[in-house]
Design a protein around this nucleic acid. Structure first.
Length: 899
DNA sequence: CAGTGAGCGAGCTTCCGCTTGACTT
């Protein structure tokens, strides 16, 4: 050991700066490096494409690709910025670099890690020699060895990463706006989230289309002898040599047996008849089969399997799991928690075996530990394997009972799980003996009835001793032999119902995405949050899509089917793999993807979007029928179809037949919103709630309803087939809706009230209530009634013609005065223009204004805290934005430039 | 999507993947 350390120090003479991604990793490797090394961390990527218009560099404004920040016309060159939260990191790294005479970039050896290294060089522009340092195991020997094998940055890997980034940006930032336009603002699509959402929607569709079936599987309770305590259950598997239908025999779309199925469907009546026929029958064992079975331990944890196990065993969400794991990692208890490799280092394998020895009786060590250590490799071909499996850290595993006080309860539970799984992965198989007993009895006209029972006994627990499986329960069967007669203790009907496929859970979806190669260990938890933020609710752990999800998926299936396809990522990765190995030039590849290209050529953009994304986006404007994609037909609405439609105010139900509408309930899952339920809701909405009473004049019912802007009254039924729009009236502010009388209601519904005619024009003068409160109207002229709140309504009731004419004859309030809200604060004169600057509260929230130009305050900013300097800065920024817009307008034909 | 007589600051939303705190609840 000592000579190696000396060698390392010699190679790095004075001072070498080593940069890794994470501070925790930096602390660890610092221990293995000598005095001549400084270790710093980049905290992940230090540069990225700008996320929003506000981050786009000024010199790009006005270019049509500015918000993409990818110059699609010139080699798909990305424009990188240093995000605000990384500026400090970069400053620190620059400082560190000043004192160094060599720079070693020790980021992960995968696509992203290589790119981080390259960005570091681009940003830091080191004058010193730069080398790439890679190691896959944080041990002294691995690092020492790596120090002697440094290399250059691999540009091919960097190109692959950049292509991945550009592709994701093009998809996300070009397709999402199509959704804003056609479905709803703020929605999103992406290479990863879209197939994830599709899986969730598709599963719900299966549940909506599902037709359940009822069937019976009678279960007999049997025992070898009258006094035996070893009674066991056996289920009927065949009648008259025909197998009974089980769940798998039914077609989920019809609830009938699958076409071609020979299975015998046993309805309840028949089952009862069979049970009666068996009342006096003799039950005799016909066959006893025993066979050994073994079960192998599962591989050590990777991110996806850890999240899954923590979800099912510890009830932790993927996000919680990652947070707890991060703490364990930072405190040195486990290895890195974002990994796709189940491989254990030699050190870990040996530590696991040592730990197992401590857990089993000494004389049985050989039984519990295989002779050779078990080795694991990633199942997915897409795995990048930059780290080893998630396992207890170090060369000696700390026992779960010996954790320090710095670990909280969840930390202890998670550590124990990781410890158990790691040890188990090195242990022997578990061995079982499976027993199958068949019993026959004559069921009269029904023919021979065959019952079967399965038992399982653990012969040797092996790895289960440490890490018990979820389904490792034993079922003992008594020792019986062919020919034995059994006592019947009873026969149960065994009524069953087929069930629709389960919804995805966070854990099962992550597993599915991982097996499809979609997403990365660092993003699984985020993917679920993205999807749940916009499209999906979690109910009792299950992922339930909302109606917007259906609309978005319908649009994408019809117009961007490639994005919905779970193979999309796989094809992209094939291309990127070729870029990484240098056999594919990424530019033609990206170009084909964006501009379209020859699909026969090797640069076909992986055949992902044959016409090219750009053309497809342009065509989508006209090609996509927003009404159609926002209409989701409900299944089973025979004759009078009902659809859920996405409107400006959210999803609503609409009967195609008569146009009747009502808001879609947000507490009813799509698979529960059957046509019958929807029809009920529409009927209820049409009738309204209980009427207050009947209007004697018209004979129509008076309803009290609640709308977006408060309570209102309605005379007659809601709009439906052939009905005219009913008359409505706001409930005046001085009335409380709870104690409203019919007479009060009729009073309010009596408006507009005619006061007389205008003496000059002869036009009728009326007063009424409107969306902006009470007003007086004469032909095209109108004026609000004066006063505040209740006063205006009192005036509405009392006003007569002369006063109304007076109000009408007065000029309208001058625009600006009335329009501009009162100032919240007066900040004084603008230092340059001298204009008075104020803070005001408007429709869109607080803003500052100099009288000419307005600028909104940033979200969450307290209007009281704005200083003159802040206001000037906001106004200046706003002026620049306006100027930039002027530039864009010019391009589209308007010459006017605002300044 | 209550009806509907005015007039008022628009500008932004969005992707995926790598990492931690700094925030708030």
């Amino acid at each position: 050991m000592a000579p190696k350390r000396r060698a390392a120090r010699q190679s790095a003479d004075a001072s070498t700066l080593v940069i890794v991604e994470s501070p925790a990793k930096a602390r660890t490797i610092k221990r293995f490096l000598g005095d001549g090394y400084t270790v710093a961390s980049s905290i992940g990527h230090i540069r990225d494409l700008p996320a929003s218009a506000a981050e786009v560099p000024k010199n790009l404004k006005g270019k049509d690709w500015a918000t993409l920040a990818v110059n699609v016309d010139e080699g798909f060159r990305p424009v990188y910025i240093i995000p605000t939260d990384k500026k400090r990191v970069v400053t620190e790294l620059r400082t560190e670099l000043k004192g160094a005479d060599q720079l070693l970039l020790a980021t992960d050896e995968d696509r992203e890690g290589e790119a981080i290294a390259w960005h570091l060089v681009e940003v830091l522009k080191p004058k010193t020699p730069v080398r790439r340092l890679v190691f896959h195991e944080i041990t002294r020997s691995a690092i020492t060895k790596a120090l002697s094998q440094t290399r250059e940055i691999d540009q091919r890997l960097v190109h692959a990463q950049e292509s991945r980034r550009v592709l994701d940006r093009l998809i996300g930032y070009l397709v999402s706006p199509v959704l804003w336009k056609k479905v709803g603002s703020g929605l999103s699509a992406g290479r990863v989230q879209t197939p994830a959402l599709w899986l969730i929607v598709q599963r719900e569709r299966e549940r909506m289309a599902f037709v359940s079936a009822d069937y019976c599987i009678p279960i007999a309770t049997l025992a070898p002898a009258e006094d035996s305590e070893t009674a066991f259950e056996a289920r009927l598997i065949s009648l008259d040599d025909r197998d009974l239908a089980t769940a798998a025999d039914f077609n989920p779309d019809t609830g009938m047996l699958r076409a071609g199925s020979r299975a015998r469907l046993l309805p309840e009546a028949d089952a009862q008849s069979v049970i009666q026929a068996l009342a006096d029958a003799t039950f005799q064992v016909t066959d006893v089969a025993k066979r050994p079975r073994t079960r192998r331990p599962q591989p050590p944890f990777i991110t996806s399997t850890l999240q899954r196990a923590a979800s099912t065993r510890l009830r932790l969400s993927p996000r919680q799991t990652m947070r707890v794991a991060q703490q364990l990692y930072e405190n040195g208890y486990i290895t890195y928690m974002r990994t796709d490799s189940p491989a254990l280092s030699a050190q870990a394998t040996s530590a696991a075996r040592t730990a197992v020895r401590a857990e089993v009786p000494q004389e049985r060590e050989r039984d519990y530990l295989p002779e050779r250590p078990r080795a694991y490799r990633a199942r997915s071909a897409r795995a990048q394997e930059a780290h080893e499996a998630i396992r207890p850290a170090g060369r000696r595993f700390r026992h779960p009972d010996d954790l320090g006080p710095d670990v909280d309860a969840d930390g202890r539970r998670l550590y124990r799980l990781i410890w158990q799984r790691t040890l188990a992965s090195q242990m022997s198989d578990a061995q079982f003996e499976q027993t199958r007993v068949q019993i026959a009895a004559e069921a009269g006209d029904h023919g021979k009835a065959v019952f079967q029972s399965n038992g399982q006994v653990v012969v040797f627990d092996g790895f289960l001793r440490i890490y018990a499986g979820e389904r490792s329960g034993e079922r003992m069967l008594p020792d019986v032999s062919p020919g034995d007669r059994l006592q019947v203790r009873g026969i149960d009907l065994g009524a069953r119902e087929t069930r629709p496929p389960d919804r995805w859970t966070e854990a099962s979806l992550i597993r599915e995405l991982e097996s499809l190669g979609i997403g990365r260990p660092s993003t699984y938890a985020t993917i679920l949050e993205t999807v749940q933020g916009k499209y999906v609710e979690r109910k009792e752990g299950a992922l339930v899509p909302g109606w917007h999800a259906f609309a978005v998926i319908q649009l994408l299936e019809a117009h961007f089917p490639e994005l919905v396809d779970s193979q999309f990522t796989a094809r992209m990765e094939d291309g990127l793999d070729r870029v990484a190995e240098g056999s594919l030039n990424p530019l033609p590849w990206l170009s084909a993807f964006y501009f379209g290209g020859d699909i026969e050529s090797e640069n076909d953009g992986a055949g992902m979007l044959r016409d090219g994304l750009r053309q497809r986006i342009e065509a989508s404007q006209d090609a996509i029928d927003a009404r159609a994609v926002c209409t989701i037909p409900l299944p089973g609405s025979n004759g009078s179809p009902i659809a859920v439609r996405i409107g400006r105010y959210g999803p609503y139900l609409e009967a195609v037949e008569n146009g009747a509408r009502t808001q879609a309930p947000d507490d009813v899952a799509p698979d529960q919103l059957t046509a019958e339920v929807a029809a009920d809701l529409l009927a209820k909405a049409a009738s309204g709630d209980e009427p207050l009473g009947t209007d004697p004049a018209s004979g129509l019912s008076v309803f009290l309803k609640s709308g977006r802007r408060g309570h209102y009254l309605q005379l007659g039924e809601s709009r439906g087939a052939g009905r005219r729009r009913p008359k409505t009236a706001s409930v005046w502010p001085m009335y409380s809706p709870e104690s409203l009388s019919l007479n009060d209601a009729l009073d309010m519904l009596a408006y507009p009230r005619t006061l007389g005619t205008h003496p000059e024009s002869g036009t009728r003068v009326t007063v009424q209530d409107g969306p902006y409160g009470p007003y007086v109207k004469c032909g095209k002229e109108s004026r609000s009634l004066p006063g505040d709140g209740d006063e205006r309504y009192a005036k509405l009731a009392s006003i007569e013609l002369p006063e109304a004419l007076e109000i009408l004859s007065a000029p309208r309030q001058p625009r600006r005065r009335r329009a501009q809200p009162a100032a919240l604060a007066d900040l004084g004169a603008h230092p340059a223009s001298g204009a008075n600057i104020t803070v005001r509260d408007g429709r869109y929230g607080p803003y500052v204004t100099d009288g000419e130009l307005n600028a909104s305050l940033p979200k969450g900013r307290d209007p009281a805290s704005v200083t003159l300097d802040d206001a000037v800065a906001l106004l200046t920024a706003r002026a620049e934005r306006v100027a930039a817009q002027g530039g864009r307008r010019r391009r589209t034909g308007t010459r006017r430039r605002r300044r």
